[in-house]
């Protein structure tokens, strides 16, 4: 770690730790995400994190339109942040009004004044756990340097999340790790199976698993396992 002086860092943290033991974790994550507005000169920013159903949930947004952008994606399972999460890669759109990829969420997003959107994956421990997004209220062709900068900044949001999680029980975390990663592998294999079998893309395949799990109130990983065992697409609750 050649860049950091451990002793001077420790001295600084000792000073910061003197006044009070706890800081507001939620507020800290909120500020780390909304800083994107000043850092990148965008109109809004937000963070979505996957829940235990692997459904992306709104977590933070800098403003109202940003919140709508995230909520409608959570409801419909469609949108740039969902694709970012599913593919684990940056996704950008220059103008939502001309977008054909996300018909179910497009109209609501445009209605609320969100036009150009860019999302990058947020990873923890090598697993994609969410999506960091920025938007502009007018059409904008994002260039590579803007994408690179947001990808770099996702590392900062990841560091803030890890710092927040560091205050929690690490042994509990370790115990559940393997199970969780196994689940993720199952889901990815089932997505691959459905893509090959049903001629659908990864986002649609993931959505099939997710909606089946929802309708049956079971976990996406359970549905994925069933698909792999039976060799058939999932059935909804009936």
């Amino acid at each position: 770690m050649p860049n950091i002086d451990p002793q001077n860092l420790a001295a600084s943290l000792r000073r910061l730790g003197v006044a009070d033991g706890h800081d507001d974790i939620t507020g800290a994550i909120d500020r780390a995400v909304t800083a994107c507005v000043d850092l990148f000169g965008v109109d809004g920013s937000g963070l979505m994190i996957a829940d235990d159903q692997n459904t992306l949930r709104y977590l933070v947004s800098s403003d109202g339109p940003g919140r709508v952008l995230e909520e409608v994606q959570s409801e419909t399972g469609q949108g740039p942040c969902v694709d970012t999460f599913v593919h684990g890669a940056p996704v950008r759109t220059e103008d939502m009004t001309r977008e054909e990829r996300w018909p179910r969420s497009r109209e609501t997003i445009v209605e609320h004044g969100v036009r150009a959107v860019m999302g990058v994956p947020v990873r923890l421990g090598g697993v994609t756990v969410g999506s960091l997004d920025v938007y502009r209220d007018h059409p904008h062709a994002w260039d590579e340097s803007e994408q690179d900068a947001l990808v770099r900044y996702s590392a900062v949001v990841e560091a803030a999340l890890r710092a927040a999680l560091a205050g929690h029980n690490a042994t509990e975390l370790a115990g559940q790790l393997q199970y969780a990663l196994d689940n993720r592998v199952l889901i990815e294999r089932a997505v691959g199976f459905l893509m090959g079998r049903g001629g659908m893309d990864a986002v649609s395949a993931f959505e099939v698993l997710r909606s089946a799990a929802r309708s049956r109130r079971s976990k996406v990983a359970q549905v994925a396992q069933e698909v792999l065992e039976t060799g058939r697409p999932p059935t909804r609750q009936g």
Binding site: M1, N3, I4, P6, L9, A10, L13, I49, A50, D51, D52, R57, L59, L124, G125, G126, V127, V129, G130, R152, Y153, A155, V156, E158, A159, L161, R162, A163, A164, L165, A166, H168, N169, A170, E172, L173, Q176, L177, Y179, A180, L181, N183, R184
Partner: peptide, 30 residues
Amino acid sequence: SLMALLARVDLPTRADGQDVQARLDEVLSA
């Protein structure tokens, strides 16, 4: 979401202080 993250993400812990150094190093490099 934090609980969900705790349940499924590998956050290897290192010796005291090294995690903090690594995170700050990432943030400065970024």
